[in-house]
């Protein structure tokens, strides 16, 4: 690890002030990605701004039919929250499947979404539930947020403050884990709200994406049978020693069908 200045601001405003004008400063949420990266000397920030002291960023609120989760809310909190379990049980399930207990007790929803790791779980839920990402400077719709590999619509110095999830009628998340890292090799979040269905995939591509063909078929007939013949093209999907692009494309179908079945249970 290289040396850096460590800051622990108490408010969002202070955090923004510290970050301002420092090109090589990095905000840190749970640090589940940043700290290993620092330890391996793969990043060399001048400043690390630890958001752990910003109380206003943590917590879960119910606002009408929306669940609003503060950016610094830990996975374990989402997984065990009575409000989340009642309103969007699929989201609690997803949070409970992230990493291992140590990660779930440190990692945060804001950190995960801002990082846009291709194998992270939350992006599938954000996209699948058509969430809104609120930052210190504005709002982003889920559909225009995930731009690519570790790339989002967040601007310089822009910090996620909360994410608002509308309550669906039914939803489920299914993931196939990378055997080694246990990150999502393919994770599919399926949500049905009224006559609208969203199918969001993480792990398979450079960033989370939706599967329009499945959404259209499921909107007409919300059963796994309805999507059994839909083939996902392998072009552009991730490929590594654990899964070829073809295998990932195939798994998107399997996980989507399982998610639909689970949502219908």
């Amino acid at each position: 690890m290289y040396d850096f200045a460590y800051h622990r601001p108490k408010s969002l405003a202070d955090a923004a002030t510290v970050l301002k004008g420092k090109d090589e400063a990095r905000p840190m949420a749970g640090g589940m990605t940043l700290i290993p990266t620092l330890k391996q000397r793969l990043a060399r920030p001048t400043d690390v701004v630890d958001l752990g002291g910003v109380k206003e960023l943590a917590g879960i609120k119910v606002e009408g039919s929306n669940l609003v989760i503060g950016a610094m809310t830990k996975h374990v909190t989402v997984a065990t929250s009575a409000d989340v379990k009642r309103m969007i049980p699929a989201l609690a399930d997803l949070a409970g499947m992230i990493g291992d207990p140590a990660v779930r007790n440190r990692g945060t929803i804001g950190g995960s979404v801002a990082n846009s790791d291709p194998a992270a779980d939350y992006p599938a839920a954000v996209l699948g539930l058509n969430a809104t990402i609120t930052t210190n400077t504005g709002k982003h719709a889920a559909d225009s947020f995930f731009k690519g590999l570790f790339e989002t619509a967040l601007g310089e110095g822009e910090l996620i403050t909360s994410i608002s999830f509308p309550k669906p009628d039914k939803a489920a998340y299914m993931k196939f884990r990378n055997p080694a890292s246990r990150y999502a090799m393919v994770g599919v979040f399926v949500a049905k709200t009224g006559n609208t269905v969203r199918v969001a995939v993480t792990g398979a591509g450079p960033a989370a994406f939706r599967v329009k063909a499945m959404e259209d078929a499921l909107a007409k007939n919300f059963t796994s049978e309805a999507i059994k013949d839909i083939k996902i093209p392998a072009d552009g999907l991730n490929s590594d020693i654990h899964g070829s692009a073809e295998y990932r494309a195939h798994l998107v179908g399997v996980m989507a069908r399982r998610a639909v079945d689970a949502a219908n249970k």
Partner: peptide, 23 residues
């Protein structure tokens, strides 16, 4: 699960961490 994989062209150890070596 376990497989030490070297890239056949470059000789880099592909399974060089627990992210890729399945214990």
């Amino acid at each position: 699960l376990e497989h030490a994989v070297y890239d056949k062209e470059t000789g880099q150890l592909v399974s060089g961490s627990y992210m890729d070596y399945t214990m």
